[in-house]
Write a protein that binds this DNA or RNA. Structure first.
Lengths: 205, 205
DNA sequence: GGTCAGTTTAACCAATTAGTCAAACCATAG
DNA sequence: CTATGGTTTGACTAATTGGTTAAACTGACC
């Protein structure tokens, strides 16, 4: 726990950690306060209620994650490079924000109205206008196979995210040790890029 | 709530529903008992504690899900057909058991020791020996590209499962209406099969 | 009918927990 | 110094909730 910043910031940071690890219902305001090194009464002074604190925490997590992705896919490089950057970007995002991502899947399932509020506030132009148009352009130029850009994007995100999100389960079902699983994850970055390019590029070398 | 079966079964069914919707911490034993139409005291009579009931519930859910997958991929058809069956099988599994699958990602992250116990009890021969060997065979015969069978399987599961698990989030980030999202999911079954086959088949038509 | 094991429940208990509040603690301006 | 505003907290409360218990109920078997 950092002890530098002011009380409000420290509480929010602590809240993110506790909510991500324990979920909304499992989180205790006392634990958040303790982690921040501040009394529980102060927590209510700043955020009024657990629910309000939760909202602020979710918003902050989401803006952190989103910022991280958008930064990487604004390039104007060759198509292959764009795919590679995209895969690497999502991969590292999911590794870095694994607990937060899992947290989103579950908590947001229960608090869907919060998602509306949050997604409304983000800038999707990079993703939707930048990236999707680029996919569309390649398609129209006949360089890639005829598929919906959105399907391609979802495929990429899925192949990057799923093995990280489902690690505890996959590891056991596939009977892989921690090391073996890590090896698999390491080779996936390159593998997914190749897999995607083979699936969509039209010219057969 | 079915009222046919005996108390124990009804409690377990109710527990699965409540745990999947609310998570372990969010679930109330009273709600489970009410849903089963049985007193909370009886719940403790049969299962001793919330924790024990939770374990039984998780085990039952898992065996339901697993059974559903294994049944579909035991075919000895052509490779293309195997891929298609696999994709359709996982797709329908994720749609049918969506809340349960999300539940697994979150709760099992917190109770990893439970996963060990559960996965130990299942039969992985169909998946690992049957399917993986088939992939391996095709690879050795030079029909498909040189890639690890496990990577291929993970890619398929990921592309089937992720869009369903992440629906609430994806729907909003991609600014798709419910109908549009449904349309996307519907075309994915065919699309993923094509995508995979293009990525792995060696001969260029 | 009587008994006995298994089942069911209303009433209760102890522990936990989100939220409150009045008093104390600053810092800064007058 | 003192007054004032924002800040901080220990002590408290009301409500919830998992779990217990003793008593009642049920049906099978003698």
């Amino acid at each position: 726990m950092d002890t530098e910043h002011n009380a409000e910031e420290r509480l929010l940071t602590a809240a993110i950690e506790v909510f991500c690890n324990r979920g909304y219902d499992g989180a205790r305001t006392q634990e958040i306060a303790d982690l921040a090194g501040i009394s529980k009464a102060s927590l209510h002074y700043y955020f009024r209620s657990k629910e309000l604190l939760f909202r602020k925490a979710v918003q902050k997590v989401f803006s952190l994650i989103i910022g991280n992705v958008a930064r990487r896919i604004s390039e104007e490089s060759s198509f292959e490079v764009v795919i590679r950057q995209l895969v690497e970007g999502y991969f590292e995002m999911f590794i870095h924000f694994r607990t937060q991502a899992v947290f989103f899947f579950t908590e947001m399932m229960k608090h869907e109205e919060l998602l509306d509020e949050i997604v409304k506030g983000i800038d999707r132009s990079v993703l939707l206008n930048g990236l999707m148009l680029r996919f569309q352009k390649e398609r129209e130029e006949g360089k890639i196979i005829d598929m919906e850009p959105v399907d391609l994007l979802v495929n990429i995100i899925a192949m990057c995210g799923y093995p990280i999100l489902a690690e505890p389960l996959l590891k056991r079902v596939l009977t892989l040790s921690n090391d073996e699983y890590q090896t698999m994850l390491n080779r996936r970055k390159e593998m997914v890029v190749d897999f995607v390019l083979r699936a969509i590029l039209k010219e057969k070398e």
